[in-house]
């Protein structure tokens, strides 16, 4: 069932054990913190996997990246899976440059990400 958390303007969708959070067109401090809050909310509510969908994201700045790293830590602490999907080539390059790709799995799209949710983490990472 899809839901939109309008209060913090972050679109979220729940699919089984996973929550899918949609990042906005520009991931900076403000929008990053919104995603962070939503992600933690989802983890606190017992979700075992969080997918962040970057389909609308054109630009990510370094503060946005640092927040994503906080999320990776938070997911690890909750023994939950964190997967990024629909990351465009430029953003993927940026993640590569800053070393994020060593810490998180990038799925081509939501379907692929969801297919990884039940798989063990070691298999999920390409």
């Amino acid at each position: 069932m899809a839901e939109t958390n309008w209060e913090i303007c972050v679109q979220t969708r729940a699919v089984g054990e996973a929550a899918i959070i949609y990042a906005s067109d520009y991931l900076n401090k403000l929008t990053g913190e919104r995603i962070e809050r939503e992600c933690k909310r989802q983890l606190d509510s017992g979700r075992r996997a969080v997918i962040i969908n970057f389909r609308d994201t054109e630009l990510v700045n370094s503060i946005g990246v640092s927040i994503l790293l906080e999320l990776i830590d938070a997911a690890e602490q909750n023994t939950a899976q964190l997967i990024f999907s629909d990351v465009n080539a430029n953003t993927a390059n940026l993640f590569e440059t800053l070393g994020l790709t060593r810490l998180v799995s990038l799925a081509t799209d939501e379907a692929e990400a969801l297919s990884w949710v039940s798989a063990p983490v070691s298999e999920a990472r390409p």
Partner: peptide, 22 residues
């Protein structure tokens, strides 16, 4: 230093490194 060098800790202040890379 970037994430690669510091293992992801100290996660702010990469702007200049990023600029130099890009």
């Amino acid at each position: 230093e970037g994430v690669k060098e510091n293992g992801g800790k100290g996660r702010r202040g990469w702007g200049l490194k990023l600029i130099r890379t890009l």
